[in-house]
């Protein structure tokens, strides 16, 4: 499935950025050439910061290389240009030390503000603990006692090219992480074996899940929908096969989902208890037979 339009869009975007015609347009987002359209406040801030810094970098790039290519065009021996022999200019050297410092300060200010926001996990409405395993995720809704594992749902045959690949190839799981919209959600991250990293680009959450550590990060999802991501820290053989799927729903739907999950879990713990008793009885019987 090779879409030539996407490649053309990439070329136009790069060209547009370098000529300052249109730094980031809807085309860019549509074809997935830039960071995806965010659905969280931090996501918006990061996208803005990213676009802004990328634009500054593009301007610097174009300015420097306009000078260089002009020089390459004009100051060449084949055009009979005589080399002048200057080898320093205190003014120029101070200029191109000071100006970059000022530009950097201009970048650092908004970046610091966003960073402070990102790290503020206080006053969350809901806490979800995420544990990375080789190679699946466990989610625990601390406030409700709900917990489950989430595994890759893509069939083996698709990976081995024996069946046609589905639309969400490798980005689909058996159980979604259901989360309410417009609530401040705090994630606690850890891992059980090696380091993993939980990433969902659209909600701007990426944080390492490290054994022995509990990391924190937060988000607030503005729009209901399904958001997909992946493990981003190499965690062994199936690192590429432990996706994350977040399903953002309204508050009512979320409450209903929680209620259902709680009921399911109670039922299954009763089943488990019965199963446990049965095997205990068996053990006793076996013991008695001896």
């Amino acid at each position: 499935m090779f879409r030539l339009e996407k490649v053309l869009a990439a070329l136009t975007t790069t060209f547009a950025l370098l000529t300052m015609a249109a730094p980031v347009g809807a085309e860019t987002q549509r074809w997935g050439l830039n960071l995806p359209t965010p659905v969280s406040p931090i996501g918006h801030e990061i996208l803005e910061l990213h676009n802004w810094i990328m634009l500054i970098c593009a301007i610097i790039f174009v300015a420097v290389f306009a000078v260089m290519f002009y020089s390459i065009y004009a100051h060449r021996k084949s055009k009979g240009h005589e080399a002048s022999q200057f080898s320093h200019s205190t003014f120029a050297e101070i200029l191109w030390t000071v100006v970059p410092v000022l530009i950097l300060v201009g970048m650092a200010i908004p970046a610091t503000a966003t960073l402070i926001n990102m790290e503020d996990t206080s006053e969350a409405d809901l806490t979800v603990k995420i544990t990375g395993y080789q190679w699946k995720w466990n989610y625990e809704y601390m406030d409700y006692g709900v917990s489950f594992y989430s595994n890759l749902a893509t069939p083996r045959e698709q990976i081995e090219n024996k069946a046609e690949k589905g639309e969400h190839y490798l980005l689909e799981v058996d159980k979604h992480v259901v989360l309410p919209v417009n609530k401040k959600i705090r994630f606690l991250l850890t891992a059980n074996d090696v380091i993993h990293s939980w990433w969902v680009p659209e909600i701007a959450v990426k944080k390492d899940a490290i054994p022995g550590y509990i990391n924190e990060i937060w988000t607030l999802i503005e729009k209901p929908g399904i958001y997909r991501g992946q493990c981003t820290e190499l965690c062994g053989k199936d690192h590429g096969f432990m996706p994350v799927v977040v399903e953002a729903v309204t508050e009512e739907e979320f409450d209903a989902w929680v209620a259902k999950k709680v009921a399911e879990q109670e039922q299954s713990s009763i089943d488990q208890f019965q199963l446990g008793t049965e095997s205990l009885v068996q053990t006793v019987e076996v013991g008695a037979l001896r």
Binding site: V64, V67, M68, S71, I72, H75, R76, K77, S78, H81, E82, A83, S84, F86, S89, A92, E93, W96, T97, P100, V101, L104, M107, A108
Partner: peptide
């Protein structure tokens, strides 16, 4: 980290300035 851009920039600018008004061959 951002500070590293300053000396790195100096190097790039100095190379371009070396080419500037030279008599270049390629």
């Amino acid at each position: 980290t951002m500070l590293i851009a300053v000396p790195t920039g100096v190097k790039i600018f100095n190379w371009v300035a070396t080419m500037w008004r030279g008599s270049m061959t390629f």
